[in-house]
Amino acid sequence: MGSYFARHVQVFLATLGDMVRTPISTINTVVIIAITLLLPSLLYVVIKSSQGLSDGWQGRPQMSVFLQKQVSASEAKQIFQEIQLHPSIELAEFITPQQAIEEFRLLSGSVSLDEELAFLGTNPLPPSIVLMPNKAAAKAESLNELKEQLEKFEGIDTIRLDLDWTERFNAILNVLTRIGLLLSGLLAMALVLIVGNTIKLLIHNRRDEIEITKLVGGTNTFVRRPFLYYGTLFGLFGALVSLVFLLIAANLVEQPLSKLASVYQRQSLLHEIQAMEVLCIIAAGAMLGWLSARWSVAQHLWKIKPS
């Protein structure tokens, strides 16, 4: 067992040494693999970030309840408390006309609305309540039922259901996810071909060594072992470099995204890669590299026979 392990360590170190001794070709291959892995990783981050945005709304539609303008502050508070107690409501936020105008100011990008307000003579925005129904009430039918129930409350002017927008957004995300999966599959195939071709060239370059090893009693398992290490290491290093590229890309878009996030009252829109996701990318790279090498070795190694 110790000897078996020692043999693997020996081949691993020898393969690593060979890679270091041919830095240009190693770097070329690793960077190509990194770019191939980067594309699906980037798409994953985009999808996750978008899902995060959607999750901000809990993936559920919001309901905006606009109160009548003549409703007093105390009446508005009372309506808010009654609505809050409704069993279908998970979250409710009361927005005063002053808060509404501040939010409008933020969204419109206007520094000051004083002139416009002075022209109107009064704040035209009514008090409102933003509701988030619970999961059970999040379906279209239940939402319409809830809307009808709320409309019966006194002091309510209009109720707006933001159902269409969230549904559309989620549908776009679903399409994006499918495209991501398809792209990942295609790029995984590309990676297999890239690593496979590199291994093919390595096999070709080491033809004499393979022949002689077979002549002195090397088994196929022994002969293919370094090539499997090559594939795995290429995939592993490619994954590590792709993570570096991903960090660089994240840094580049962080600032503009932060500005966008502030519009949505969020700190950040960018999905922060978790340790488990880092491990998954590394494992995927190594696994794909190993599979590619295995495929290439199966294709080409048996053709080399001692002569």
Binding site: S3, A6, I212, T213, L215, V216, G217
Partner: peptide, 24 residues
């Protein structure tokens, strides 16, 4: 001779023993 010219004499002679996993 069928020797590996990019390896040392030691590496060439050791090859059949490496193949059978003999300790270094």
């Amino acid at each position: 001779h069928k020797l590996l010219m990019d390896r040392t004499v030691f590496d060439n002679v050791a090859l059949p023993l490496i193949v059978i996993g003999m300790p270094h």
